[in-house]
């Protein structure tokens, strides 16, 4: 038996092997002179779903944005520490200023809290990233689009109206389209920033189920304020908390351990408080 195999995890897909996919050491993020996150060290495991939990404003979104260098878009944002994308024996320094950010973002997709399909047709939403990454052949495009839409369970719903405006879709459909738009580039890692929080409960359930089906194939890092959801879909959980107005990682571990036997008192209080 593989020594790293954790055995069955109650919540989530059967099991996954803790092979680091993203390796993070002493990560700190600051905006201008204001530090928002400091001293974060953890490994994100390949093929697993890692849920980031904790109160608002404790740096979870900043952490997520650092992972695909979306922090570059924020004026004055600074990321320090070590952040590596591990791929077998190779590892890529993600904080290297000379890094090809476009190639990185192709490997690390992102889903936002508010669905943000472009004001284009459904088809063009998926075609645009493919074309921009150099795919031009019509049959290959069509095939990839169908695959991505099927993966998010949207194909049957929209196959007859691919040229309809994406903004005409419902909120849940829009969010699944955004996930398809990320999947169509065949990324290894998906970052999700509260992907269900702007949706109604039914749509939220559909999206959640879909995310769960992604585990194993993709490495997923998901920020969520819904602890029940984190417990349902997460393999691992990371609890963030504020200390002296700076966000910090307090506890990281298997989902079941974090929820059932938290080590740190802040974790216990947060989970207990949310439950009670």
């Amino acid at each position: 038996m593989n020594p790293h195999t954790l055995g069955c995890i109650e919540a989530g897909t059967p099991c996954c092997v803790p092979v680091p996919h993203l390796s993070i050491e002493n990560l700190a993020v600051s905006y201008g002179d204001t530090p928002v996150l400091s001293d974060v060290s953890l490994d994100i495991y390949k093929g697993c779903i890692t849920a980031l939990i904790g109160p608002s404003g404790c740096g979870k979104t900043s952490f997520l944005n650092a992972l695909n260098r979306l922090t570059d878009l924020i004026p004055g944002a600074r990321v320090e520490g070590r952040l590596r994308l591990v791929d077998g024996a190779n590892s890529l320094d993600l904080l290297d200023p000379g890094l090809d950010v476009r190639a990185l973002r192709r490997r690390v997709g992102m889903i936002f809290q508010r669905p943000n399909p472009f004001p284009l047709s459904i088809r063009r939403n998926l075609e645009l990233p493919l074309r921009e990454h150099g795919m031009r052949r019509a049959d290959a495009l069509a095939h990839k689009i169908e695959t991505a839409l099927s993966d998010v369970g949207l194909w049957e719903e929209v196959r007859d109206r691919l040229d309809a405006p994406a903004l005409a879709l419902s909120g849940g459909q829009q969010q699944r389209l955004c996930i398809a738009r990320a999947l169509v580039l065949e990324p290894e890692i998906l970052l999700m920033d509260e992907p269900c929080s702007a949706l109604d409960p039914i749509a939220s359930g559909v999206v959640e189920e879909m995310i769960q089906s992604l585990s194993g194939r993709y490495t997923v890092v998901i920020v969520t304020h819904n602890l029940a959801q984190a417990r349902r879909i997460g393999n691992y959980a990371a609890f963030f908390w504020m200390r002296e107005r700076i966000g910090q990682l307090v506890e990281f571990g298997r989902c079941r351990q974090i929820f059932d036997a938290p080590v740190h008192p802040a974790t216990a209080a947060y989970i207990g408080g949310m439950r009670g």
Binding site: N68, L70, D72, L73, V101, R102, A103, L104, R105, R106, G109, M110, F112, R114, N116, P117, F118, P119, L128, P129, E132, H133, C178, R181, A182, L185
Partner: peptide
């Protein structure tokens, strides 16, 4: 959201 979405997909700024 569109700007960030485009960046997250690795689109160039001009695209």
């Amino acid at each position: 959201g569109w700007r960030r979405g485009a960046a997250a997909l690795g689109l160039t700024q001009s695209a």
